[in-house]
Simulated scan of single mutants.
Amino acid sequence: MPTGHSHHSQNGQLDSRRFRQVLGRFATGVVAITAVDPMDGQPCGLAANSFTSVSLDPPLVAFCMAYSSTSWPRLRGAKALTVNVLAEHQQAVCAQMATKGGDKFAGLAWTVSPSGNPVLEGALAWLDCAVEAEHPAGDHLIVVARVLQLDTLGEGGPLVFFRGGYGSFNGGFVEPA
Rank of each mutant, 00 (worst) to 15 (best):
L127Y: 08
A78G: 01
D103N: 15
S6D: 08
A125P: 08
D128W: 06
G116W: 02
R76G: 00
L86R: 05
S113L: 00
D40M: 04
L124P: 12
R20Y: 09
M65V: 15
L81F: 04
H7S: 12
L23N: 14
L23M: 13
G41R: 00
L120D: 04
L23H: 13
Q42C: 12
L81N: 04
S71T: 14
V31N: 13
A66S: 04
P59D: 02
A123C: 14
G12R: 06
F105V: 10
A95K: 14
G29F: 05
D57R: 15
V112P: 07
Q96L: 05
R18L: 14
R76K: 01
V30R: 04
S55W: 12
A80F: 01
A130Y: 11
V85K: 02
Q42L: 14
A27W: 06
T82H: 03
H7R: 14
T52H: 05
L108D: 09
A125E: 07
V22Y: 03
A98Q: 07
P114K: 07
H5Q: 10
F19N: 07
C44A: 02
F51R: 11
D37N: 01
L23Y: 14
G101A: 11
Q21I: 05
L60C: 02
T70P: 04
G107H: 12
H5N: 10
L23A: 12
M65I: 15
G45A: 03
A35Q: 02
C64A: 14
G122Q: 03
L86P: 08
V131K: 09
N49R: 12
P43R: 07
A35W: 02
V131F: 06
M39D: 11
T99K: 15
F26N: 09
S16T: 09
N11D: 15
R25P: 05
A109F: 03
A92G: 05
G101W: 11
V30M: 05
D103K: 02
I33V: 07
H7E: 06
E88T: 12
D37H: 00
L23I: 11
A62D: 07
F19P: 10
G41Q: 01
A47Q: 05
Q96S: 13
L56Q: 03
D103H: 03
D37A: 00
W110E: 03
K79Y: 06
N49T: 15
G41M: 00
R74Y: 01
D128Q: 08
A48S: 14
G107Y: 11
M65K: 11
A130S: 12
S68H: 10
Q90F: 08
V31S: 08
A62K: 04
A78Q: 02
A47F: 06
T52Y: 10
Q13M: 13
T70R: 09
G101T: 06
S55R: 06
L86V: 05
V85I: 13
Q21N: 10
T99S: 10
E121G: 06
E121V: 06
N84H: 09
A48K: 13
G102K: 13
A80S: 02
L108W: 03
P43G: 12
L124V: 11
P73I: 00
P73A: 01
L124T: 09
G102L: 07
A66G: 10
W72E: 10
V93F: 11
K104P: 06
N49D: 15
P58V: 01
L60I: 00
